[in-house]
Design a protein around this nucleic acid. Structure first.
Lengths: 129, 129
DNA sequence: ATACATCCTGTAGCCACTACAGGATCAACA
DNA sequence: TGTTGATCCTGTAGTGGCTACAGGATGTAT
Protein backbone atom coordinates (compact mmCIF):
# COMPACT_ATOMS: atom_id res chain seq x y z
CA UNK A 1 0.00 0.00 0.00
CA UNK A 2 1.43 3.31 -1.13
CA UNK A 3 0.81 6.89 -0.22
CA UNK A 4 -0.29 9.28 -2.92
CA UNK A 5 3.25 10.53 -3.67
CA UNK A 6 4.52 7.05 -4.37
CA UNK A 7 1.37 6.18 -6.33
CA UNK A 8 2.00 9.28 -8.44
CA UNK A 9 5.56 8.16 -9.18
CA UNK A 10 4.54 4.59 -9.98
CA UNK A 11 1.60 5.55 -12.19
CA UNK A 12 3.01 8.67 -13.79
CA UNK A 13 -0.09 10.65 -12.80
CA UNK A 14 0.68 13.67 -10.71
CA UNK A 15 -0.65 14.08 -7.20
CA UNK A 16 -3.11 16.89 -7.90
CA UNK A 17 -4.43 15.00 -10.90
CA UNK A 18 -4.95 11.83 -8.85
CA UNK A 19 -7.06 13.80 -6.37
CA UNK A 20 -8.91 15.36 -9.28
CA UNK A 21 -9.67 11.92 -10.76
CA UNK A 22 -11.02 10.78 -7.41
CA UNK A 23 -13.13 13.94 -6.96
CA UNK A 24 -14.61 13.45 -10.42
CA UNK A 25 -15.31 9.79 -9.81
CA UNK A 26 -13.03 8.69 -12.65
CA UNK A 27 -11.31 6.33 -10.23
CA UNK A 28 -12.93 5.00 -7.04
CA UNK A 29 -12.27 6.76 -3.72
CA UNK A 30 -8.98 5.64 -2.24
CA UNK A 31 -8.71 3.94 1.11
CA UNK A 32 -7.45 6.09 3.97
CA UNK A 33 -5.08 5.73 6.91
CA UNK A 34 -6.39 6.56 10.39
CA UNK A 35 -5.09 10.09 9.94
CA UNK A 36 -6.86 10.53 6.61
CA UNK A 37 -4.08 9.96 4.08
CA UNK A 38 -4.96 8.16 0.88
CA UNK A 39 -3.64 4.63 0.29
CA UNK A 40 -3.20 2.86 -3.05
CA UNK A 41 -2.81 -0.86 -3.67
CA UNK A 42 -1.41 -2.37 -6.86
CA UNK A 43 -4.81 -2.48 -8.55
CA UNK A 44 -5.44 1.20 -7.79
CA UNK A 45 -2.02 2.11 -9.16
CA UNK A 46 -2.64 0.01 -12.27
CA UNK A 47 -5.91 1.88 -12.76
CA UNK A 48 -4.13 5.22 -12.54
CA UNK A 49 -1.51 4.03 -15.01
CA UNK A 50 -4.29 2.92 -17.33
CA UNK A 51 -5.88 6.36 -17.18
CA UNK A 52 -2.55 8.03 -17.87
CA UNK A 53 -1.88 5.82 -20.88
CA UNK A 54 -5.32 6.52 -22.27
CA UNK A 55 -4.77 10.26 -21.75
CA UNK A 56 -1.38 9.96 -23.45
CA UNK A 57 -3.26 8.42 -26.35
CA UNK A 58 -5.53 11.44 -26.31
CA UNK A 59 -8.72 9.72 -25.18
CA UNK A 60 -11.17 12.11 -23.57
CA UNK A 61 -12.12 11.43 -19.96
CA UNK A 62 -15.63 10.36 -21.00
CA UNK A 63 -14.13 7.57 -23.12
CA UNK A 64 -11.81 6.57 -20.30
CA UNK A 65 -14.77 6.21 -17.96
CA UNK A 66 -16.33 3.83 -20.47
CA UNK A 67 -13.08 1.92 -20.98
CA UNK A 68 -12.63 1.52 -17.23
CA UNK A 69 -16.18 0.24 -17.04
CA UNK A 70 -15.49 -2.27 -19.79
CA UNK A 71 -12.25 -3.38 -18.17
CA UNK A 72 -13.97 -4.25 -14.90
CA UNK A 73 -16.55 -6.15 -16.90
CA UNK A 74 -15.78 -9.87 -16.89
CA UNK A 75 -16.39 -10.24 -20.62
CA UNK A 76 -14.20 -7.22 -21.52
CA UNK A 77 -15.94 -6.79 -24.88
CA UNK A 78 -13.23 -6.11 -27.37
CA UNK A 79 -15.61 -4.84 -30.01
CA UNK A 80 -16.63 -1.87 -27.89
CA UNK A 81 -13.02 -1.04 -27.10
CA UNK A 82 -12.26 -1.20 -30.78
CA UNK A 83 -15.20 1.01 -31.63
CA UNK A 84 -14.16 3.68 -29.15
CA UNK A 85 -10.55 3.52 -30.32
CA UNK A 86 -11.53 3.69 -33.97
CA UNK A 87 -13.76 6.70 -33.34
CA UNK A 88 -10.91 8.40 -31.52
CA UNK A 89 -8.48 7.51 -34.30
CA UNK A 90 -10.86 9.09 -36.83
CA UNK A 91 -10.93 12.18 -34.67
CA UNK A 92 -7.13 12.30 -34.46
CA UNK A 93 -6.90 11.94 -38.23
CA UNK A 94 -9.33 14.80 -38.72
CA UNK A 95 -7.24 16.99 -36.42
CA UNK A 96 -4.11 15.88 -38.24
CA UNK A 97 -5.60 16.95 -41.53
CA UNK A 98 -6.64 20.32 -40.05
CA UNK A 99 -3.16 20.86 -38.69
CA UNK A 100 -1.60 20.01 -42.03
CA UNK A 101 -3.75 22.63 -43.74
CA UNK A 102 -2.79 25.05 -41.00
CA UNK A 103 0.88 24.33 -41.50
CA UNK A 104 0.62 24.99 -45.25
CA UNK A 105 -1.19 28.27 -44.61
CA UNK A 106 1.44 29.35 -42.10
CA UNK A 107 4.25 28.48 -44.48
CA UNK A 108 2.58 30.78 -47.03
CA UNK A 109 2.27 33.51 -44.43
CA UNK A 110 5.92 33.30 -43.44
CA UNK A 111 6.92 33.40 -47.11
CA UNK A 112 4.81 36.55 -47.58
CA UNK A 113 6.92 38.07 -44.91
CA UNK A 114 10.23 36.89 -46.27
CA UNK A 115 11.52 40.31 -47.25
CA UNK A 116 11.30 43.16 -44.74
CA UNK A 117 9.81 45.85 -46.95
CA UNK A 118 8.07 48.96 -45.71
CA UNK A 119 4.57 47.52 -45.19
CA UNK A 120 4.20 43.97 -44.03
CA UNK A 121 2.47 41.94 -46.77
CA UNK A 122 1.38 39.31 -44.26
CA UNK A 123 -0.48 41.84 -42.13
CA UNK A 124 -1.91 43.43 -45.23
CA UNK A 125 -3.26 40.08 -46.36
CA UNK A 126 -4.81 39.34 -42.98
CA UNK A 127 -6.50 42.74 -43.00
CA UNK A 128 -7.84 42.53 -46.56
CA UNK A 129 -11.59 42.49 -47.28
CA UNK B 1 -21.77 51.91 -39.22
CA UNK B 2 -23.10 48.47 -38.37
CA UNK B 3 -24.70 46.92 -35.35
CA UNK B 4 -23.05 43.95 -33.73
CA UNK B 5 -25.12 41.36 -35.63
CA UNK B 6 -24.08 42.73 -38.99
CA UNK B 7 -20.49 43.16 -37.83
CA UNK B 8 -20.55 39.50 -36.80
CA UNK B 9 -21.73 38.46 -40.26
CA UNK B 10 -19.21 40.65 -42.06
CA UNK B 11 -16.25 39.64 -39.93
CA UNK B 12 -17.13 36.01 -39.33
CA UNK B 13 -16.72 36.46 -35.56
CA UNK B 14 -19.81 35.57 -33.62
CA UNK B 15 -21.62 38.09 -31.45
CA UNK B 16 -20.72 36.67 -28.08
CA UNK B 17 -17.10 36.41 -29.15
CA UNK B 18 -17.03 40.04 -30.31
CA UNK B 19 -18.25 41.13 -26.88
CA UNK B 20 -15.67 38.84 -25.30
CA UNK B 21 -12.88 40.42 -27.37
CA UNK B 22 -13.99 43.86 -26.27
CA UNK B 23 -14.23 42.83 -22.62
CA UNK B 24 -10.72 41.41 -22.78
CA UNK B 25 -9.34 44.49 -24.49
CA UNK B 26 -8.30 42.52 -27.57
CA UNK B 27 -10.16 45.06 -29.71
CA UNK B 28 -10.94 48.62 -28.55
CA UNK B 29 -14.33 49.42 -27.03
CA UNK B 30 -16.93 49.94 -29.72
CA UNK B 31 -18.82 53.18 -30.14
CA UNK B 32 -22.39 53.19 -28.90
CA UNK B 33 -25.76 54.51 -30.05
CA UNK B 34 -27.73 56.75 -27.68
CA UNK B 35 -29.51 53.65 -26.41
CA UNK B 36 -26.26 51.82 -25.75
CA UNK B 37 -25.95 49.51 -28.74
CA UNK B 38 -22.51 48.90 -30.15
CA UNK B 39 -21.55 50.35 -33.53
CA UNK B 40 -18.80 49.17 -35.87
CA UNK B 41 -17.21 51.06 -38.75
CA UNK B 42 -15.23 49.43 -41.56
CA UNK B 43 -11.96 49.64 -39.65
CA UNK B 44 -13.49 47.96 -36.61
CA UNK B 45 -14.92 45.21 -38.80
CA UNK B 46 -11.56 44.75 -40.54
CA UNK B 47 -9.96 44.38 -37.12
CA UNK B 48 -12.44 41.68 -36.16
CA UNK B 49 -11.83 39.89 -39.44
CA UNK B 50 -8.10 40.11 -38.79
CA UNK B 51 -8.54 38.50 -35.38
CA UNK B 52 -10.68 35.75 -36.85
CA UNK B 53 -8.13 34.97 -39.55
CA UNK B 54 -5.36 34.85 -37.01
CA UNK B 55 -7.45 32.52 -34.84
CA UNK B 56 -8.17 30.36 -37.90
CA UNK B 57 -4.40 30.17 -38.32
CA UNK B 58 -4.21 29.00 -34.73
CA UNK B 59 -2.44 32.04 -33.27
CA UNK B 60 -3.01 32.41 -29.53
CA UNK B 61 -4.74 35.58 -28.37
CA UNK B 62 -1.50 36.88 -26.84
CA UNK B 63 0.16 36.78 -30.27
CA UNK B 64 -2.85 38.46 -31.84
CA UNK B 65 -2.59 41.31 -29.37
CA UNK B 66 1.00 41.80 -30.46
CA UNK B 67 0.13 41.55 -34.15
CA UNK B 68 -2.65 44.11 -33.74
CA UNK B 69 -0.18 46.38 -31.98
CA UNK B 70 2.30 45.99 -34.82
CA UNK B 71 -0.38 46.61 -37.44
CA UNK B 72 -1.33 49.96 -35.91
CA UNK B 73 2.33 50.83 -35.83
CA UNK B 74 3.25 53.01 -38.81
CA UNK B 75 6.41 51.04 -39.58
CA UNK B 76 4.56 47.67 -39.41
CA UNK B 77 7.80 45.80 -38.76
CA UNK B 78 7.71 42.75 -40.94
CA UNK B 79 10.53 41.04 -39.11
CA UNK B 80 8.55 40.83 -35.89
CA UNK B 81 5.52 39.50 -37.72
CA UNK B 82 7.71 36.91 -39.32
CA UNK B 83 9.26 35.96 -36.01
CA UNK B 84 5.88 35.44 -34.36
CA UNK B 85 4.59 33.47 -37.34
CA UNK B 86 7.70 31.32 -37.49
CA UNK B 87 7.47 30.56 -33.78
CA UNK B 88 3.85 29.59 -34.22
CA UNK B 89 4.69 27.47 -37.24
CA UNK B 90 7.32 25.64 -35.19
CA UNK B 91 4.69 25.04 -32.56
CA UNK B 92 2.21 23.72 -35.12
CA UNK B 93 4.88 21.39 -36.52
CA UNK B 94 5.62 20.08 -33.04
CA UNK B 95 1.93 19.39 -32.50
CA UNK B 96 1.76 17.76 -35.91
CA UNK B 97 4.58 15.46 -35.02
CA UNK B 98 2.92 14.58 -31.68
CA UNK B 99 -0.35 13.84 -33.46
CA UNK B 100 1.43 11.64 -35.99
CA UNK B 101 2.96 9.60 -33.18
CA UNK B 102 -0.45 9.44 -31.57
CA UNK B 103 -2.02 8.21 -34.77
CA UNK B 104 0.54 5.44 -35.11
CA UNK B 105 -0.01 4.36 -31.51
CA UNK B 106 -3.78 4.31 -32.03
CA UNK B 107 -3.45 2.28 -35.20
CA UNK B 108 -1.48 -0.27 -33.17
CA UNK B 109 -4.14 -0.27 -30.49
CA UNK B 110 -6.96 -0.84 -32.96
CA UNK B 111 -4.98 -3.66 -34.55
CA UNK B 112 -4.51 -5.27 -31.13
CA UNK B 113 -8.25 -5.33 -30.92
CA UNK B 114 -8.83 -6.69 -34.40
CA UNK B 115 -10.11 -10.05 -33.28
CA UNK B 116 -12.79 -10.21 -30.61
CA UNK B 117 -11.30 -12.87 -28.37
CA UNK B 118 -12.29 -13.46 -24.78
CA UNK B 119 -10.03 -10.90 -23.12
CA UNK B 120 -9.36 -7.63 -24.88
CA UNK B 121 -5.63 -7.42 -25.71
CA UNK B 122 -5.81 -3.65 -26.00
CA UNK B 123 -7.15 -3.24 -22.46
CA UNK B 124 -4.63 -5.78 -21.23
CA UNK B 125 -1.81 -3.81 -22.77
CA UNK B 126 -3.01 -0.54 -21.28
CA UNK B 127 -3.21 -2.17 -17.85
CA UNK B 128 0.19 -3.85 -17.99
CA UNK B 129 2.99 -2.91 -15.58
C1' DA C 1 -50.89 47.71 -29.70
C1' DT C 2 -48.48 43.87 -30.45
C1' DA C 3 -45.26 40.71 -31.98
C1' DC C 4 -40.78 39.60 -32.89
C1' DA C 5 -35.90 40.51 -33.70
C1' DT C 6 -32.03 42.29 -31.85
C1' DC C 7 -29.49 44.09 -28.43
C1' DC C 8 -27.71 44.68 -23.43
C1' DT C 9 -25.26 42.95 -18.85
C1' DG C 10 -23.75 39.46 -15.96
C1' DT C 11 -22.78 34.94 -14.75
C1' DA C 12 -21.80 30.07 -15.29
C1' DG C 13 -20.08 26.23 -17.95
C1' DC C 14 -16.77 23.73 -21.02
C1' DC C 15 -12.13 20.50 -20.69
C1' DA C 16 -8.55 18.56 -18.02
C1' DC C 17 -6.02 19.90 -15.25
C1' DT C 18 -2.66 23.15 -12.32
C1' DA C 19 -1.51 26.23 -8.66
C1' DC C 20 -1.93 28.02 -4.76
C1' DA C 21 -3.34 29.08 0.51
C1' DG C 22 -3.53 27.56 4.89
C1' DG C 23 -3.25 23.95 7.82
C1' DA C 24 -2.34 18.88 9.67
C1' DT C 25 0.66 14.97 10.15
C1' DC C 26 4.79 12.18 9.87
C1' DA C 27 9.73 10.63 10.06
C1' DA C 28 14.29 11.62 11.38
C1' DC C 29 17.55 13.56 14.12
C1' DA C 30 19.73 16.50 18.14
C1' DT D 1 11.34 16.45 23.76
C1' DG D 2 11.72 19.74 20.32
C1' DT D 3 12.36 20.96 15.79
C1' DT D 4 12.95 20.69 11.02
C1' DG D 5 11.39 19.47 6.58
C1' DA D 6 8.80 16.40 3.72
C1' DT D 7 4.43 14.96 2.71
C1' DC D 8 -0.21 15.12 3.05
C1' DC D 9 -5.06 17.32 3.51
C1' DT D 10 -9.21 20.47 1.84
C1' DG D 11 -10.95 24.08 -0.77
C1' DT D 12 -10.81 27.49 -4.14
C1' DA D 13 -9.33 29.97 -8.20
C1' DG D 14 -7.04 30.18 -12.57
C1' DT D 15 -5.90 28.49 -17.43
C1' DG D 16 -7.68 29.45 -22.94
C1' DG D 17 -11.04 30.85 -25.74
C1' DC D 18 -14.96 30.90 -26.05
C1' DT D 19 -20.28 29.47 -25.55
C1' DA D 20 -24.72 29.44 -23.40
C1' DC D 21 -27.91 31.01 -20.89
C1' DA D 22 -31.14 34.33 -17.81
C1' DG D 23 -33.55 38.29 -17.52
C1' DG D 24 -34.38 42.54 -19.28
C1' DA D 25 -34.32 46.78 -22.65
C1' DT D 26 -34.88 48.59 -27.21
C1' DG D 27 -36.05 48.75 -32.17
C1' DT D 28 -38.96 47.78 -36.21
C1' DA D 29 -42.97 46.29 -38.78
C1' DT D 30 -47.64 45.53 -39.05
Amino acid sequence: MQHIGEAAKLSGVNIETIRYYEREGIVPTAERTASGRRLYDDAAIARLRFVRRCRDLGFPIADIRTLLGLSSNASKPCSEVKEISQRHLDDVRARLSDLQNLEAALVDLVHECASARSECPALKQLFAD
